[in-house]
Amino acid sequence: MKKYIIIYLVGILALTSCNSKESRSFVLTPKEAAKANSQTNIISPQLLGDIYYSRNNTTIYQFIDLRTPQVFENGHVKNAINIPFRTMTRNKSCRYFLNQDVINIIYGESTEQAIFAGFFLQQIGVKNYFIVLGNYDFIKDNIIDHYNVYSAHYNPEIAQYDYARIVAETAGARNYASSPKAAKPAATFKRKKKSAAGGGCD
């Protein structure tokens, strides 16, 4: 009987440790991951637009959609493949991320999801990817349906407000002297009247 139990145990061990999941372990230690450069794998909206609109000529860029299949069905970037976030490490999906012949452009249902995915790949040593901040709606509204790559709000990690000033302005600024920054640009952008404004159009 003992033998059977042992065989059974080892078998289970072998199966559980290796079944159905790609055997990847972390390449970066947690500390290394914390210090890793976070900006290199974020794609700008302009580049995203350039890729999107020249994709007919190239197959090297693979869009990956991390949302659930149901949402994916309702609309996605053309030719994107659907790999729901949780299934990223399954053997089937893992292939796509480990494939070094393409560059993966990853987007999800939110900025955070894309960041989680990107940060995860970074930690297991995959580098040939870019993540899209924002989400699918961002791509749809500002790249696909309209071309609005500059005005669209993209990098949320930038401070949107002068926090200190707002706090000072909110409800009776006590103990706080606001120090508004001096006015800047004007000078360099001024427009001089040209000599012969020939039928000027303004």
Binding site: P30, A33, T111, F116, Q123, L133, E157, I158, Q160
Partner: peptide, 16 residues
Amino acid sequence: GNSSDLAAKAWMLTKR
């Protein structure tokens, strides 16, 4: 942070 980005990373590390 200013947004959720940095926090998402730090949080993921704590979970790891």
